[in-house]
Computed example of a mutant assay.
Amino acid sequence: MEYQPYVSSVSKARVLLIGPVGGGKSSFVNSVNSVFRGHVTNRTLIGSGPRSTTTMYSTYSFRNDTPPLTLCDTMGLAEDTVSGLHSDDIISIIKGHIPNKYKFAVDSPFKAGDISPRAIKEKIHCVAYVIDVSKTPMLSTEMKTKICAIRSKIDELEVPQIVLLTKVDEECPMVGKDVETVYRSDLIAEKVMEVGKQLGIAVSCIIPVQNY
């Protein structure tokens, strides 16, 4: 991988993964690590229940900094206001205030207080919304409203945002047989257009992926 951050003070780009519980954030971390290790790995705990398996903010870099990325995993978003990641915590993460292995408390968001501004290398450089394309519906009305509100706050920070559509192999039988056909699938194309319209994100910033 030849990618290198264009700012000399940043050795690795920090990508924040956020999205509904069960969307595939932790699986994506494992998938990226597996690709660059050459075999299947399990660096993060994966769950399938209604509550988020991830309860701490965790950052993951890769052997020999290949790729030169740090993936930042978070607690999943929930439709209600009594569970899941708090939107205020997302902003604190992006600004670089929340330390690695910080345990989230839904009823008590992180208080930055008088913490001094962080260096650019400690901040988040890109936000990726991780969404399960095989769910019906992909996003409930409540979840769409919550993500759009989060998007609006992140827009004010001028941080780039993309969408990772996971489980494309489960949604489309053709892709399930051969993932290389993903960009020839009319079904996946429809899902890309749908989530782009719901969240107001350009289709060029929506990436269909298959996790291990």
Rank of each mutant, 00 (worst) to 15 (best):
M143C: 09
H125C: 10
C126Y: 15
V82E: 12
D155V: 05
C72T: 05
L157G: 00
I124R: 01
T59Q: 07
G96L: 12
I124N: 03
G113C: 07
A13P: 00
I90V: 01
L17A: 03
N100H: 11
E79W: 00
T74G: 06
C72F: 09
L157V: 00
N211K: 13
S48W: 15
F104D: 05
F36V: 06
A112I: 04
I94F: 03
D155S: 01
S204E: 01
T81S: 06
V7F: 15
M75L: 02
H97W: 14
A112M: 09
A149T: 08
N211E: 08
K101P: 01
S34T: 09
I18N: 01
I201S: 12
N64R: 00
D132N: 13
V40I: 05
A128E: 10
V29F: 07
T59H: 11
L17K: 01
A202W: 06
V203N: 01
T166V: 07
P109K: 12
I201K: 14
K103A: 06
E190M: 11
L187G: 13
N33P: 10
K95V: 13
E2H: 07
S108V: 05
G196A: 13
I115N: 12
V10Y: 10
V21K: 10
E156F: 08
T44P: 07
